[in-house]
Amino acid sequence: MKHKHFIIYKPYGYLSQFMSKDSKQQSKRFLGGLYDFPEGIMAIGRLDEKSEGLLLLTTDGKLSDYINSKKVDKEYYALVDGDITEDAIIQLQQGVEIGFDGKKYKTKACKVFKLKKVPDLPERSKKIRDMRHGPVSWISITLNEGKFRQVRKMTSAVGFPTLRLVRVRVGNIQLGTMEVGHVKAVDVLNV
Rank of each mutant, 00 (worst) to 15 (best):
D65M: 10
Y76A: 09
G61W: 09
S64Y: 02
L57G: 09
V72G: 04
Y66D: 03
D36M: 09
L54M: 03
E75V: 11
L56P: 01
T58L: 14
Q94L: 12
I84F: 05
V72P: 00
K70V: 00
N68K: 13
L31K: 05
I89A: 12
I44K: 04
F30N: 07
L31S: 08
P38S: 12
S51M: 09
D87V: 14
T85S: 15
G45S: 08
T85H: 04
S69H: 06
G82T: 05
K74W: 00
G40Y: 02
E75W: 09
M42K: 13
G82V: 05
G53A: 10
L55K: 09
I41W: 00
E86W: 01
F30I: 10
G82M: 12
L55T: 03
G33D: 14
G32A: 11
D87C: 04
G32P: 02
I89W: 02
D65W: 03
D65T: 04
V72H: 03
A78F: 01
L92M: 15
V72M: 07
A78I: 02
D73T: 06
F30T: 06
R46Y: 08
E75N: 03
S51Q: 05
I89M: 13
L92F: 04
R29W: 01
L56D: 01
T58E: 12
A43E: 00
L34T: 03
I89N: 07
G45M: 08
I90W: 05
V72E: 00
K50S: 08
I44P: 00
L54S: 03
E86L: 11
S64H: 01
D60R: 14
V80H: 06
V72R: 04
D87E: 15
A78G: 06
P38M: 12
R29I: 07
D36C: 07
S64V: 01
D83C: 06
G61R: 13
G82R: 06
D83L: 13
Q94R: 11
L55N: 05
T85Q: 02
G61N: 09
D36S: 14
I90K: 15
V72L: 06
A88G: 12
L55F: 07
D60C: 13
D60K: 13
G53M: 08
L56G: 00
F30P: 01
G40L: 11
I89G: 08
